[in-house]
Protein backbone atom coordinates (compact mmCIF):
# COMPACT_ATOMS: atom_id res chain seq x y z
CA UNK A 1 0.00 0.00 0.00
CA UNK A 2 1.44 3.37 -1.00
CA UNK A 3 2.16 6.28 1.30
CA UNK A 4 -0.88 8.25 2.51
CA UNK A 5 -3.18 5.76 0.85
CA UNK A 6 -6.21 7.07 2.75
CA UNK A 7 -5.74 10.50 1.16
CA UNK A 8 -5.19 8.84 -2.23
CA UNK A 9 -8.31 6.77 -1.75
CA UNK A 10 -10.44 9.87 -1.16
CA UNK A 11 -9.03 11.32 -4.35
CA UNK A 12 -9.62 8.13 -6.33
CA UNK A 13 -5.91 7.79 -6.92
CA UNK A 14 -5.48 4.19 -5.77
CA UNK A 15 -4.66 1.56 -8.34
CA UNK A 16 -7.19 -1.27 -8.82
CA UNK A 17 -5.18 -3.76 -6.81
CA UNK A 18 -4.64 -1.31 -4.04
CA UNK A 19 -8.35 -0.46 -3.96
CA UNK A 20 -9.22 -4.14 -3.90
CA UNK A 21 -6.82 -4.78 -1.08
CA UNK A 22 -8.11 -1.78 0.88
CA UNK A 23 -11.77 -2.76 0.41
CA UNK A 24 -11.07 -6.22 1.77
CA UNK A 25 -9.44 -4.84 4.90
CA UNK A 26 -11.48 -4.78 8.08
CA UNK A 27 -11.08 -1.00 8.66
CA UNK A 28 -12.61 -0.16 5.26
CA UNK A 29 -16.16 -0.11 6.66
CA UNK A 30 -15.08 2.22 9.47
CA UNK A 31 -13.58 4.71 7.04
CA UNK A 32 -16.65 4.54 4.87
CA UNK A 33 -18.81 5.38 7.80
CA UNK A 34 -16.63 8.27 8.88
CA UNK A 35 -16.88 9.71 5.40
CA UNK A 36 -20.63 9.23 5.24
CA UNK A 37 -21.14 10.98 8.57
CA UNK A 38 -18.66 13.77 7.90
CA UNK A 39 -20.26 14.49 4.55
CA UNK A 40 -23.37 15.57 6.42
CA UNK A 41 -21.37 18.16 8.33
CA UNK A 42 -22.02 21.84 7.80
CA UNK A 43 -20.00 24.85 8.79
CA UNK A 44 -21.69 27.59 10.84
CA UNK A 45 -23.85 30.12 9.02
CA UNK A 46 -22.06 32.81 7.11
CA UNK A 47 -24.08 35.76 5.82
CA UNK A 48 -22.21 36.86 2.73
CA UNK A 49 -24.28 40.00 2.10
CA UNK A 50 -23.88 41.19 5.65
CA UNK A 51 -20.15 40.55 5.53
CA UNK A 52 -19.93 42.53 2.29
CA UNK A 53 -21.82 45.42 3.86
CA UNK A 54 -19.63 45.32 6.97
CA UNK A 55 -16.56 45.27 4.80
CA UNK A 56 -17.65 48.43 3.03
CA UNK A 57 -18.14 50.23 6.31
CA UNK A 58 -14.81 49.10 7.66
CA UNK A 59 -12.82 49.82 4.55
CA UNK A 60 -14.22 53.34 4.20
CA UNK A 61 -13.60 54.26 7.83
CA UNK A 62 -10.17 52.66 7.69
CA UNK A 63 -9.33 54.72 4.65
CA UNK A 64 -9.52 57.90 6.66
CA UNK A 65 -8.24 56.47 9.89
CA UNK A 66 -5.16 54.47 9.09
CA UNK A 67 -2.21 56.76 8.62
CA UNK A 68 0.96 55.08 9.69
CA UNK A 69 3.46 57.48 11.08
CA UNK A 70 6.76 56.97 12.68
CA UNK A 71 6.66 59.56 15.39
CA UNK A 72 10.16 58.81 16.55
CA UNK A 73 11.62 59.21 13.09
CA UNK A 74 9.70 62.44 12.65
CA UNK A 75 11.06 63.73 15.95
CA UNK A 76 14.58 62.86 14.85
CA UNK A 77 14.13 64.84 11.66
CA UNK A 78 12.84 67.85 13.57
CA UNK A 79 15.64 67.57 16.09
CA UNK A 80 18.21 67.42 13.30
CA UNK A 81 16.72 70.46 11.59
CA UNK A 82 16.62 72.42 14.82
CA UNK A 83 20.19 71.62 15.73
CA UNK A 84 21.42 72.58 12.26
CA UNK A 85 19.56 75.85 12.65
CA UNK A 86 21.16 76.38 16.05
CA UNK A 87 24.66 75.81 14.75
CA UNK A 88 24.15 78.10 11.77
CA UNK A 89 22.63 80.90 13.81
CA UNK A 90 25.32 80.53 16.43
CA UNK A 91 28.07 81.15 13.89
CA UNK A 92 26.02 83.81 12.14
CA UNK A 93 25.40 85.89 15.22
CA UNK A 94 28.86 85.25 16.55
CA UNK A 95 30.49 86.59 13.41
CA UNK A 96 28.16 89.52 12.89
CA UNK A 97 26.72 91.02 15.96
CA UNK A 98 27.56 91.76 19.49
CA UNK A 99 24.61 93.64 20.90
CA UNK A 100 24.41 95.44 24.21
CA UNK A 101 21.28 97.23 25.27
CA UNK A 102 20.03 99.01 28.36
CA UNK A 103 16.54 99.09 29.79
CA UNK A 104 14.94 102.18 31.24
CA UNK A 105 16.61 103.37 34.45
CA UNK A 106 19.72 101.39 33.58
CA UNK A 107 23.19 102.38 32.49
CA UNK A 108 25.98 100.22 31.15
CA UNK A 109 29.66 100.65 30.50
CA UNK A 110 31.05 98.60 27.62
CA UNK A 111 34.74 98.07 26.93
CA UNK A 112 35.32 97.43 23.23
CA UNK A 113 38.02 95.02 21.94
CA UNK A 114 40.52 97.89 21.44
CA UNK A 115 39.91 99.20 25.00
CA UNK A 116 37.69 102.01 23.76
CA UNK A 117 34.93 102.72 26.23
CA UNK A 118 31.25 103.20 25.62
CA UNK A 119 28.82 104.31 28.29
CA UNK A 120 25.27 103.54 27.33
CA UNK A 121 22.55 105.81 28.68
CA UNK A 122 19.17 104.39 29.65
CA UNK A 123 17.00 102.85 26.91
CA UNK A 124 19.80 102.56 24.35
CA UNK A 125 21.44 99.88 22.25
CA UNK A 126 24.73 99.40 20.44
CA UNK A 127 25.85 96.58 18.23
CA UNK A 128 29.18 95.82 16.61
CA UNK A 129 31.15 92.98 15.13
CA UNK A 130 33.65 91.53 17.54
CA UNK A 131 35.49 89.57 14.86
CA UNK A 132 35.91 92.35 12.35
CA UNK A 133 36.75 94.95 14.97
CA UNK A 134 40.44 94.88 14.03
CA UNK A 135 39.65 95.83 10.44
CA UNK A 136 36.90 98.34 10.99
CA UNK A 137 35.65 100.01 14.12
CA UNK A 138 31.96 100.26 13.36
CA UNK A 139 29.20 100.72 15.90
CA UNK A 140 25.50 100.97 15.28
CA UNK A 141 23.74 103.09 17.87
CA UNK A 142 20.16 103.61 18.86
CA UNK A 143 19.62 106.00 21.75
CA UNK A 144 22.44 107.79 23.52
CA UNK A 145 26.01 106.88 24.37
CA UNK A 146 29.26 108.53 25.37
CA UNK A 147 32.36 107.30 23.58
CA UNK A 148 35.97 107.44 24.76
CA UNK A 149 37.76 106.18 21.67
CA UNK A 150 41.28 104.79 21.84
CA UNK A 151 43.63 106.14 19.18
CA UNK A 152 43.75 104.02 16.05
CA UNK A 153 41.86 103.51 12.83
CA UNK A 154 38.71 105.31 11.86
CA UNK A 155 35.97 104.86 14.40
CA UNK A 156 32.42 105.12 13.09
CA UNK A 157 29.17 105.46 14.95
CA UNK A 158 26.21 104.90 12.66
CA UNK A 159 22.71 106.03 13.57
CA UNK A 160 19.62 106.15 11.43
CA UNK A 161 19.97 109.93 11.21
CA UNK A 162 23.66 110.23 10.42
CA UNK A 163 27.12 108.87 11.07
CA UNK A 164 29.92 110.15 13.23
CA UNK A 165 33.54 109.43 12.39
CA UNK A 166 36.60 109.99 14.52
CA UNK A 167 40.14 108.79 14.96
CA UNK A 168 40.49 108.99 18.73
CA UNK A 169 38.53 111.22 20.99
CA UNK A 170 35.70 111.58 23.44
CA UNK A 171 32.26 112.42 22.24
CA UNK A 172 28.58 111.89 22.91
CA UNK A 173 26.01 110.82 20.37
CA UNK A 174 22.29 110.85 20.88
CA UNK A 175 19.68 109.89 18.36
CA UNK A 176 16.08 109.39 19.35
CA UNK A 177 13.04 109.89 17.16
CA UNK A 178 13.84 113.01 15.17
CA UNK A 179 16.45 114.24 17.60
CA UNK A 180 20.15 113.91 16.76
CA UNK A 181 22.87 115.39 18.94
CA UNK A 182 26.63 115.03 18.86
CA UNK A 183 28.93 116.66 21.40
CA UNK A 184 32.70 116.54 21.13
CA UNK A 185 34.75 116.74 24.31
CA UNK A 186 38.22 115.96 23.00
CA UNK A 187 39.91 115.75 19.58
CA UNK A 188 37.97 116.21 16.39
CA UNK A 189 34.71 114.64 15.30
CA UNK A 190 33.27 114.53 11.85
CA UNK A 191 29.48 114.38 11.62
CA UNK A 192 27.77 113.55 8.39
CA UNK A 193 24.08 114.32 8.20
CA UNK A 194 22.13 114.24 4.95
CA UNK A 195 25.44 113.86 3.11
CA UNK A 196 26.69 117.13 4.61
CA UNK A 197 29.82 116.76 6.68
CA UNK A 198 30.40 118.97 9.70
CA UNK A 199 33.71 119.11 11.57
CA UNK A 200 33.17 119.32 15.27
CA UNK A 201 36.20 120.44 17.30
CA UNK A 202 36.51 119.79 21.02
CA UNK A 203 34.10 121.87 23.09
CA UNK A 204 31.38 122.06 20.49
CA UNK A 205 28.17 120.25 19.84
CA UNK A 206 25.59 119.98 17.12
CA UNK A 207 21.89 119.44 17.63
CA UNK A 208 19.62 118.53 14.78
CA UNK A 209 15.90 118.16 15.17
CA UNK A 210 13.07 118.60 12.72
CA UNK A 211 15.67 119.27 10.04
CA UNK A 212 17.22 122.37 11.66
CA UNK A 213 20.84 122.34 12.66
CA UNK A 214 21.97 124.20 15.76
CA UNK A 215 25.59 124.39 16.78
CA UNK A 216 26.47 125.00 20.40
CA UNK A 217 29.26 124.79 22.93
CA UNK A 218 30.12 122.25 25.58
CA UNK A 219 32.78 122.24 28.26
CA UNK A 220 36.10 120.83 26.99
CA UNK A 221 37.74 117.78 28.51
CA UNK A 222 34.62 116.74 30.37
CA UNK A 223 31.92 114.19 29.94
CA UNK A 224 28.26 114.72 29.16
CA UNK A 225 26.29 115.53 32.27
CA UNK A 226 24.36 112.22 32.25
CA UNK A 227 27.59 110.34 32.88
CA UNK A 228 27.64 112.23 36.20
CA UNK A 229 24.02 111.36 36.97
CA UNK A 230 22.50 114.56 35.69
CA UNK A 231 20.51 115.30 32.56
CA UNK A 232 21.15 118.76 31.14
CA UNK A 233 19.21 120.56 28.44
CA UNK A 234 19.72 123.77 26.59
CA UNK A 235 16.76 125.08 24.60
CA UNK A 236 15.31 121.64 24.10
CA UNK A 237 11.56 121.07 23.55
CA UNK A 238 9.85 120.11 26.79
CA UNK A 239 8.62 116.75 25.47
CA UNK A 240 12.22 115.55 24.89
CA UNK A 241 12.95 116.46 28.50
CA UNK A 242 9.99 114.43 29.67
CA UNK A 243 11.04 111.48 27.48
CA UNK A 244 14.48 111.54 29.08
CA UNK A 245 12.87 111.62 32.52
CA UNK A 246 10.86 108.52 31.62
CA UNK A 247 14.01 106.73 30.50
CA UNK A 248 16.08 107.66 33.54
CA UNK A 249 13.50 106.56 36.10
CA UNK A 250 11.47 104.00 34.15
CA UNK A 251 8.24 105.86 34.84
CA UNK A 252 5.29 106.98 32.77
CA UNK A 253 4.91 110.71 32.33
CA UNK A 254 1.74 112.42 31.23
CA UNK A 255 0.79 116.09 30.99
CA UNK A 256 -2.39 118.11 31.32
CA UNK A 257 -2.78 121.65 29.96
CA UNK A 258 0.93 122.07 29.26
CA UNK A 259 2.61 123.16 26.04
CA UNK A 260 5.18 120.43 25.45
CA UNK A 261 6.82 122.20 22.50
CA UNK A 262 8.16 125.13 24.54
CA UNK A 263 11.89 125.05 25.06
CA UNK A 264 13.48 123.96 28.28
CA UNK A 265 16.86 124.87 29.66
CA UNK A 266 17.97 123.24 32.84
CA UNK A 267 19.19 120.12 34.57
CA UNK A 268 17.61 117.31 36.56
CA UNK A 269 19.09 114.64 38.77
CA UNK A 270 19.16 111.06 37.52
CA UNK A 271 19.28 109.59 41.01
CA UNK A 272 16.65 111.45 43.02
CA UNK A 273 13.21 111.48 41.44
CA UNK A 274 11.60 114.00 43.81
CA UNK A 275 14.43 116.41 43.26
CA UNK A 276 14.23 115.87 39.52
CA UNK A 277 10.48 116.50 39.46
CA UNK A 278 10.96 119.69 41.41
CA UNK A 279 13.73 120.96 39.16
CA UNK A 280 11.48 120.50 36.16
CA UNK A 281 8.23 121.83 37.60
CA UNK A 282 9.45 124.79 39.69
CA UNK A 283 10.87 127.02 36.90
CA UNK A 284 7.65 126.66 34.91
CA UNK A 285 5.32 127.02 37.86
CA UNK A 286 3.48 123.84 37.04
CA UNK A 287 2.29 121.18 39.44
CA UNK A 288 3.39 117.58 39.56
CA UNK A 289 1.77 114.49 40.99
CA UNK A 290 3.58 111.17 41.56
CA UNK A 291 1.65 107.98 42.05
CA UNK A 292 3.44 104.65 41.79
CA UNK A 293 5.35 104.90 38.55
CA UNK A 294 2.94 107.43 37.06
CA UNK A 295 3.85 111.10 36.97
CA UNK A 296 1.44 113.83 35.95
CA UNK A 297 2.56 117.37 35.17
CA UNK A 298 -0.39 119.77 35.08
CA UNK A 299 -1.05 123.48 34.83
CA UNK A 300 -1.93 125.24 38.09
CA UNK A 301 -5.45 126.23 37.06
CA UNK A 302 -6.59 122.72 36.16
CA UNK A 303 -7.55 120.46 39.06
Amino acid sequence: MQENYLAKWLNNELSEEELKEFKSSEEYASYQRILAASDQLEAPEFDLDMAWKDFHERSTTDDTKVIRMRPFQKMLRIAAAVSVLFVISYFYFNSLNETISTQYAQRETVILPDASEVILNAGSEISYSKKKWDQQRNIVLEGEAFFKVAKGKKFTVATAAGTVTVLGTQFNVEHRDGFFEVSCYEGLVSVSYNEVETQLPAGSSIVIFNGTIVEDEVAKNQSPSWVNDESSFKSIPFKFVLNELERQYDIEVSTQGIDTVQLFTGTFSNTNLNLALESISAPYQIKVKLKGNQVLFYAEETP
Binding site: E3, N4, Y5, L6, A7, K8, L10, E27, S30, Y31, I34
Partner: peptide, 20 residues
Protein backbone atom coordinates in the same frame (compact mmCIF):
# COMPACT_ATOMS: atom_id res chain seq x y z
CA UNK B 1 0.41 18.97 -1.59
CA UNK B 2 2.21 15.98 -0.15
CA UNK B 3 2.07 17.51 3.32
CA UNK B 4 -1.68 17.94 2.92
CA UNK B 5 -2.05 14.31 1.84
CA UNK B 6 -0.14 13.30 4.94
CA UNK B 7 -2.42 15.39 7.14
CA UNK B 8 -5.48 13.92 5.47
CA UNK B 9 -4.21 10.39 5.91
CA UNK B 10 -3.32 10.95 9.56
CA UNK B 11 -6.66 12.69 10.20
CA UNK B 12 -8.61 9.72 8.91
CA UNK B 13 -6.50 7.24 10.87
CA UNK B 14 -6.89 9.28 14.05
CA UNK B 15 -10.65 9.63 13.59
CA UNK B 16 -11.05 5.90 13.13
CA UNK B 17 -8.85 5.10 16.08
CA UNK B 18 -10.84 7.45 18.28
CA UNK B 19 -14.28 6.33 17.09
CA UNK B 20 -13.58 2.62 17.06
Amino acid sequence: VKAIEKRMHLALKALRAQID
